[in-house]
C-alpha cells in the first residue's frame, strides 16, 4: 500500500469520525443529507459483497466493516434516534436520490469488467458512489449556516477522492497490471463534483469567514 492510498483511506475514515462526532456527541445532524447517507449505505452494501468470500488483508476487512457499520448506523441515527432525527433538515433535503440508483444500475449492467452478479454490483457501487454526494452538495447550497463539522465532513470526503486519484497514478506506474478504467473514470467524475465546494471551502478558510455556498 502506498502513502496516497493510506492517506486517502485515513481522510475517508476521518470524515466518518467527524460525522459520527457531530451526530453522537452533539446529537445533531443539521446540514447533513439523509439521501446521501442512504446512498453510501447502499454503495458499501453492494461493493463489499465479497467481504466473507475474498480475504485480502486484515486491514481491508476491518476497514470494510467500519464503513458498513458506520454508514448504516448514521442512517439509523438520522431516521430513528429521537433527538437526532429532529435536527434533520428534511425540507431542504429534497434531491430525488432514487432517480440516481436506476441509471447507475443500468450503466453497471452495460459497462462492467465481467458480466457476473458480483462484478455488476461492484460497477454499480462505483457509479453510485460517484454521484452519491450530490444531495449533500445541494443541501449545503440551501443551508444558510453551514457549521464547521459539516464543512469538515465534506472536505475530508473530497480529500479522500483526490488522494485516491494520486494513488491510482502511483499504482499505474509501479504495478504493471494495475488497470481499472471503471473506477478511474467514475473517480475523476466524483472528484470534479467537489471542485466548486473546495473553492469556496478554501476561500472561507483563507479569508477566515464562515463557509457559505452561493445559491
Amino acid at each position: 500500500m502506498n502513502a496516497f492510498r493510506l492517506a486517502g483511506d485515513m481522510t475517508h475514515l476521518l470524515s466518518v469520525v467527524v460525522l459520527l462526532l457531530k451526530i453522537h456527541t452533539i446529537k445533531s445532524c443539521a446540514g447533513i443529507s439523509l439521501k446521501t447517507q442512504e446512498l453510501y449505505a447502499l454503495v458499501f452494501a453492494a461493493r463489499y459483497l465479497d467481504l466473507f468470500i475474498h480475504f485480502i488483508s486484515l486491514y481491508n476487512t476491518v476497514m470494510k466493516l467500519v464503513f458498513l457499520a458506520s454508514s448504516f448506523s448514521i442512517v439509523w441515527y438520522m431516521r430513528r434516534h429521537k433527538i437526532v432525527r429532529r435536527t434533520y433538515d428534511k425540507d431542504h433535503d429534497t434531491f430525488r436520490h432514487h432517480f440516481l440508483v436506476l441509471p447507475c444500475l443500468a450503466l453497471a449492467l452495460l459497462i462492467n469488467e465481467r458480466f457476473t452478479f458480483r462484478e455488476v454490483m461492484w460497477a454499480f457501487s462505483i457509479y453510485l458512489e460517484a454521484v452519491a454526494i450530490l444531495p449533500q452538495l445541494v443541501l449545503l447550497q440551501r443551508t444558510r449556516n453551514i457549521d464547521n463539522l459539516t464543512g469538515q465532513y465534506v472536505f475530508f470526503l473530497g480529500a479522500y477522492r483526490v488522494l485516491y486519484i494520486l494513488n491510482w497514478i502511483y499504482r499505474y506506474f509501479t504495478e504493471p497490471h494495475f488497470v481499472h478504467w471503471i473506477s478511474w473514470v467514475a473517480g475523476i467524475v466524483q472528484t470534479l463534483l467537489y471542485a466548486d465546494f473546495f473553492y469556496y471551502y478554501i476561500m472561507s478558510w483563507k479569508n477566515n469567514v464562515k463557509l457559505e455556498l452561493p445559491a
Binding site: 465479497d50 476497514m63 461492484w122 499504482r171 497490471h177 494495475f178 488497470v179 481499472h180 473506477s183
Partner: peptide
Amino acid sequence: ECLTAPKDEL
C-alpha cells in the same frame, strides 16, 4: 489473461 488488478481498494 488477467488484465485487471484484484479489487483490493475500499
